[in-house]
Structures are given as structure tokens and as C-alpha cells.
């Protein structure tokens, strides 16, 4: 499935999954069916840009400019991360 993932793919959360700020523990969490994941800080930055309208390419460009990092390096990492989260049924493209 993740083989279909390109920079033009529009990424969104699977139904029943969301990113939420946990104000008691002061961290981001992924709420999912009967489990909550804690994204690492980089994953949280990526997931905050997932809104069902942005493409993967737009998300990568945004991160590259904000963190002043090369697009190809960020792009590779984000592709791997998004593929993994698709396998875990957190994201869909």
C-alpha cells in the first residue's frame, strides 16, 4: 500500500484516529482505537501538518523551510515515517 505514496499524495488521519494535545501531561498523543501512541517530537511536527488537504510534498517543504534542512533528507525521513504510520492504520493516503 505504501508503495503508492508519492509527494502528490494527500495525507489524512484514518477515521477514528487523531492527534491531540494532552494538557495534563503536556505532550502530543495519537488517539486511536483502544490505544494511544506518543509520537516523538519530529513525528508530532509532521502530524500537526496532516489536515486532509496538504500533500506529502507540501508537508515536506514546510518542514524543510522551518527547520532549514535539505528537502531530500527531510523527504526521505517523512516518507518512511508516513509509510510506517499507514501500516499501523494511523494515516491513510
Amino acid at each position: 500500500m505504501s508503495a503508492d505514496l508519492t509527494d502528490d499524495s494527500v495525507i489524512r488521519f484514518a477515521r477514528g484516529v487523531r492527534l491531540q494535545h494532552d494538557r495534563v501531561r503536556e505532550r502530543w498523543i495519537i488517539q486511536a482505537p483502544e490505544r494511544a501512541f506518543i509520537p516523538d517530537p519530529i513525528a508530532a511536527e509532521v502530524l500537526r501538518l496532516v489536515d486532509g488537504t496538504r500533500t506529502l510534498g507540501q508537508i515536506i517543504a514546510d518542514l524543510a523551510s522551518r527547520f532549514a534542512a535539505p528537502v531530500d533528507v527531510i523527504g526521505r525521513d517523512v516518507h518512511v515515517m508516513v509509510s510506517d504510520l499507514m501500516t499501523r492504520q494511523v494515516l491513510v493516503a
Binding site: 494532552d22 501531561r25 498523543i29 483502544e34 494511544a36
Partner: peptide
């Protein structure tokens, strides 16, 4: 209020 995230 206490920090519960999920209710079943």
C-alpha cells in the same frame, strides 16, 4: 480533568 484520555 484528571488526565484520562479514553473512555470505554
Amino acid at each position: 480533568e484528571m488526565g484520562v484520555l479514553q473512555v470505554h
